[in-house]
């Protein structure tokens, strides 16, 4: 697969996903899309499972994200971006580079079809919960940040195929990602939106919004 071409196409897909969901309209996939086989993917993921869990539920304490039910095009793009360096992670980079285009499609298809148990954690303090919910669904006028739900769906349920769900995702992972956007370790969104808004968030904002999403029920698979 030509990563550059694919990247451009995915940027366009990313842009349209919110509308596509409203319209029940399927974006027309380009000729370079590998069709994923979840069956073959199942044979590839034993190594993934050591961190991301047997059911794709992730591992909160280590900051390993939940993958179950995340949209396949999103997961495939992340793997390609790790391989290309648009997303930096010492462990994932090498795994991603070892996968063929077909492998990536298969692994993505596998995880997108999984349903994992909910892993809702601790309760935060009320003030942080209020801040987190406001950031997630309304944003913050004082710092010029829009609500996360505008792209990631109401309550962070995701806007497949390209915008990941945040509901039920581990707080440690969301926090690490917002910090990665802030620091430039991650720069693989369509228009630098994430870097811009992450830089406006304080550490307390990040902790609050991460904790709030972690407490929401994740969406089911079948997307």
């Amino acid at each position: 697969m030509n990563a550059a071409v694919s990247s451009v196409r995915l940027k366009l897909l990313c842009a349209v996903s919110a509308c596509a969901a409203l319209l029940l309209w399927r974006p027309v996939l380009g000729a370079d899309d590998a069709v994923g086989s979840a069956t073959h993917g199942a044979q590839l993921v034993s190594i993934c499972a050591s961190c991301h869990g047997q059911r794709g539920e992730g591992l909160a304490a280590a900051g390993f994200p939940r993958l179950a039910g995340q949209a396949a095009p999103y997961l495939a793009k992340q793997l390609r971006d790790y391989a290309a360096g648009a997303r930096e992670n010492a462990v994932m980079d090498s795994f991603a580079k070892a996968l063929s285009a077909q492998d990536i499609a298969d692994v993505a298809a596998y995880y997108s079809n999984l349903n994992a148990p909910e892993t809702r954690p601790f309760k935060t303090d009320a003030k942080a919960a209020t801040t987190g919910r406001a950031l997630a669904n309304l944003g913050d006028a004082r710092i010029g940040v829009q609500g996360c739900g505008n792209c990631h769906g109401p309550n962070g349920r995701g806007e497949p195929p390209t915008l990941p769900y945040l509901a039920g995702q581990h707080a440690e992972y969301i926090t690490a990602q917002l910090e990665a956007w802030q620091q430039g370790m991650r720069h693989n969104d369509s228009g630098e939106q994430m870097a811009g808004l992450a830089k406006k968030l304080s550490a307390a904002d990040i902790a609050a919004v991460s904790a709030w999403f972690a407490q929401q029920p994740p969406p089911a698979a079948q997307r």
Binding site: A18, L22, N137, L138, G139, D140, A141, G144, V145, Q146, G147, G149, N150, P154
Partner: peptide, 12 residues
């Protein structure tokens, strides 16, 4: 203002 008046999903 953008926040809170223009936020999704209401704004669409």
């Amino acid at each position: 203002d953008t926040v809170p008046d223009f936020q999704g999903p209401y704004v669409h």
